[in-house]
Nucleic acid binder design. Sequence first.
RNA 1: GCGGGUGUGGCGGAAUGGUAGACGCACCGGACUUAAAAUCCGUUGGGCCCUAGGCCCGUGGGGGUUCAACUCCCCCCACCCGCACCA
Length: 860
Amino acid sequence: MTETPDRTQESNAPKYDFAAAEPAWQAAWEQAGCFTALDVPAGDKPKYYVLEMFPYPSGKIHMGHVRNYTLGDVVARYKRARGFDVLHPMGWDAFGLPAENAARQRKTDPASWTYANIANMRGELKRMGLSLDWSREFATCDPEYYGQQQQIFLDFWKAGLVERKQSAVNWDPVDNTVLANEQVIDGRGWLSGALVERKILSQWFLKITDYAPELLAGLNDLPRWPERVKLMQENWIGRSEGAEVTFKLAGSDDGITVYTTRPDTLFGMSFLAIAPEHPVAKSLAERNAEAAAFIAECASQGTSEAAIETAEKKGFDTGLFVVNPFNGEKFPVWIANFVLMEYGTGAIFGCPCGDQRDLDFARKYNLPVPVVVSPKAGEVPEIGNKALDGDGFIVNSGFLDGMSTKEAKAAAIAKLEEIGAGKSVVNWRLRDWGISRQRYWGCPIPVIHCEVCGPVAETNLPLVLPKDVTFDKPGNPLDHHPTWKHVNCPQCGKAATRETDTFDTFIDSSWYFARFTAPHAKTPTNLSAVKHWLPVDQYVGGIEHAILHLLYARFFTRAMQKTGHVSVAEPFAGLFTQGMVTHESYKDADGNWLYPEEVTKHADGTATTADGRPVTVGRIEKMSKSKRNTVDPGVIIERFGADAARWFVLSDNPPERDVEWTETGAQGAFRFVQRLYRLAETIAAEPKVAKPETFSGEAKKLRQLTHRSILTVTEALETFAFNVAVARGYELAGALVGESPTDPALLWARREAIGILARLLAPMIPHVAEAVNAVLNPGAGLVAEQTWPEADPALTVKDEVTIAVQLNGKLKATITVPVGGSQEANVAIAKAAAAGALKGQTIVKEIYVADRIINFVVKP
RNA sequence: GCGGGUGUGGCGGAAUGGUAGACGCACCGGACUUAAAAUCCGUUGGGCCCUAGGCCCGUGGGGGUUCAACUCCCCCCACCCGCACCA
């Protein structure tokens, strides 16, 4: 009892104990059921569906998740306060390669690894205080989910949206395994190091190309999508108008058909090039060893378009010739590694003067470069190493001479049709969606292959993955399984084989947003629920998904609409794409990457390891495990609290840009949370006064700031300018710092300000907002259940304005005048204010923009 | 290679074609303290002039349109995202 309390320690302790408060407020929200929604709500509250891209359960949340889910949570909490009935669910994109890799390395099975990761990450997300309806949670690897997905696939099949086609995969000839593109490094298998081959397999496809026109046109119905995302999708779908032209092989009745968008340049032909997989190339390879060798070389380039296009342009002269239908001349046929079999007809005609790639190819193999396009009508320009790929005028081209490229296209097509050598066609870059994966940890494709009946639908869903699989040899464990694939045909009863491929995981993420509306329905969707909740009003995720995931989901939704599973065509009415989270990277003297916690930074800007070895501070890069420049959100939340972590990821820059995580920034956020609570305690302890009749001076100014803050924060939240909302929060809080006043009007205004501030910031820092509210109004309800503050219009109108006075556009003075003052009066004031600068100058012109600027154009 | 984006103080960034640098971080100075931390107050784009005060330069680089350009147009550079089997 004689112990003296350590006063130093006590005064050092933060007043706001986030570690105790945050879980307590989370429990209070849960108990009040603030965030649960009904599948089919009664009543007439408007609905708002907020969704963030669900995470892959890698084991721990990362800063990208913290940012993504905080952004979505701000929207969800804000919309709730605005009176919307909000649906804000969370789940797990749980199938995929990492679980199989973990199974191989650690001898665990993918399911238990995945579910353990989910359990851990669920805890971390809950600690963030997100306003999620956890009752809707599911993982895509739950049989309850993927069984419904199998049903959808069978419905698509019946509806004619599924087909079986040949397509190429990356084949590792040593491990006898199909490789993902990311497992191919510099053309070699990541584990075996063997040169990867292109191998053709029979696979399942969804006919996304049937919807190409709709997917393109539908972009016009998405005003709340970023323009750049729509542009990327438009280019990806790649509608082009051109012509198919058939070139007769010299001395044969056979021909090669090319697709071209430049029929106007047919007279500029220099060669014809075909893809290595083109039938003509293949048949040549059968009798020509050199051709076969070249084709094999091309096949070692891998399947990714980037790899093919960045590879050195190479060709093989087949010795064959084709005849140009316009001028009857003969041109050589080459096999070229940059011609894609998947695009157009797998063959092009080469016009070097009008296409850079063709020109590079012609220069490399010394092929002629006939000039047929000119920027000026009638002139024939010199072509160096730069092709004239823009619009212009046609020269040296017979009947096309003198026409613009646009006119010539139409004329050339008309002629082709007239002579029966070609026709006008619309071509799409978009290819059908190959959905077969030769892997275990995915949704089994519910098909049985019968020699008599062909492929037949599995009748007993869900078709569940077998658990007794081994990962001790390469390849697909489903295929290795001793019994799983051997079944009887559901139609004829004869012995048959199960499909051992699983679905592309992009399918899992193409309808989860629909399943969230009724996650426990016995059918894929509950129509009443999807009708009520879809489309998603605000979708939030990374820009890296701008094309594939979002396009697949748009297609899948249309296909589900056709098969009666949903009632809308577009899944996401609003889209926001966030930037990445970055951090400085560090290397030691031996060039090894170091984690931030291994690095000590010094005042002089240098850095060392804990034991004093020098550290090179590298570039700021996207947080990634390989560069070790990651910061664990769990550690950050433990040190600074969930609110501080949320505040920091919102504060430092606009959400669509990359954000750099910095220790000092996190500390700053922590201090703000503390300051806010301290302010509330200070103000709560001030005398409570009745609302005065009038406000003047400082009190009026504070009230004006408070009510303008309502407008500015509201606008910032509506437009995703969360960093601006944060700045306004700092501004209003800053106005409340300092000694407590005695003026009753100011006391009243301060109490009003801190209460409104808490509500304005609650979407961003919900825990401390509750704490502030509780200390100001003990016993009052939760902020999470309050409506959004409303500004008093009388306090938000500006009565004075500061106008810039410029000479020749350069600022010379500012004047503060009543809003709406007359031009005459304001110009007179401006002349007086800038009298010094105007001395000896003649005013040539006055530019007057009311309430903004006065610019005197002057001459000496 | 192709498609899409980004670039503003020491740092993150703000700015309907109209006062560039709001707000924050960091730094520096002051108050409080035996001291430190925390907190509070204040300074801070660069250069120049003799103070008051004023002048010049300045939004990746170069050109252009305009009374006025971070903002619009053209060319270039650097970095980032995507490229169909990573999610």
